[in-house]
Design a binder for these strands. Structure first.
Lengths: 145, 145
DNA sequence: TATTGTTATACTCTATAACTATA
DNA sequence: TATAGTTATAGAGTATAACAATA
């Protein structure tokens, strides 16, 4: 291993942590948290998802997600419904209030992406996105240990 | 904001979380943790650093770091010494045992980077590193709020 | 028997601030 | 007064396993 500043997991962690910390501080002023935003963003992409599905796409543990959704439900941001066809499962859907909060968070999210990619030309930004997707997929090889 | 799968903070978080989780599980079998590895990797780069310096490069909170270093000191991996010239400050240096543990962790760290970058040609990998450094630096702009 | 989600517990990390000892 | 580090406390998040209901 060479210098830390060329070690990819280190760079990935530093960049990700910095983005996440700053974003979290900012959305808290709007009455949300990073975790709440992750759930809302996942539901914006596809509303009415199952808990397990939501856990997978947000990278939030199921047991954490249960309590997070409890809180969001209490605040009227989402609503749980039994999944028709499988009574074990539950789907989570946004309410009008949830969508209003999402609408207020979206400009912040957009701004963060713009700032992070400031100075990147579109092709460069897309290469970065592709590289991160590929890196994620490469980790499948480690499942075996 | 477009699809989640093109949203950079999302991609960054997913890739980073996956790498970190898998790596942590693996080094635990060798008697370390991800946090311990971060400290050792930082000290490998430059041994005998101050606590504040260490906190900055590892992205670990100072108060967390104090207790982490407490534990590492108890295990004989590092040693605290007063900084000559400033009696308030403390430097943290590895012991022989700490360097032995580092040596055992290095191959794992190398393997993770190799797996993550599997299929990337060297120029591509370097572009990714440069992009992550640049992204990190771009976040300076958010300090103002 | 396996799966979905909830609950419970202990643990880790963070956030915040108070505290000490220096500078 | 400001800085370096420690300590204390409360709050998030994770890990694990036990559990209920259903498949």
């Amino acid at each position: 291993m060479g210098p830390l500043d060329s070690y990819l997991p280190y760079l990935l962690n530093r960049a990700g942590a910095r983005l996440a910390t700053a974003f979290d501080a900012e959305v808290r002023r709007l009455g949300a948290t990073l975790q709440i935003w992750r759930v809302l963003a996942a539901l914006r992409e596809h509303d009415g998802r199952r808990m397990g599905d939501l856990a997978a796409t947000t990278a939030i543990e199921v047991s954490t997600l249960t309590r997070l959704v409890d809180g969001m439900e209490k605040r009227g941001l989402v609503r749980r419904r039994p999944e028709p066809g499988d009574a074990r499962a539950v789907t989570v859907a946004t309410t009008a209030a949830g969508r209003r909060l999402t609408a207020r968070l979206l400009p912040v999210a957009d701004r963060y992406e713009r700032v992070a990619l400031d100075g990147f030309d579109p092709a460069e930004a897309d290469r970065l996105r592709a590289a991160l997707r590929r890196l994620y997929a490469n980790m499948d090889a480690l499942k075996a240990g």
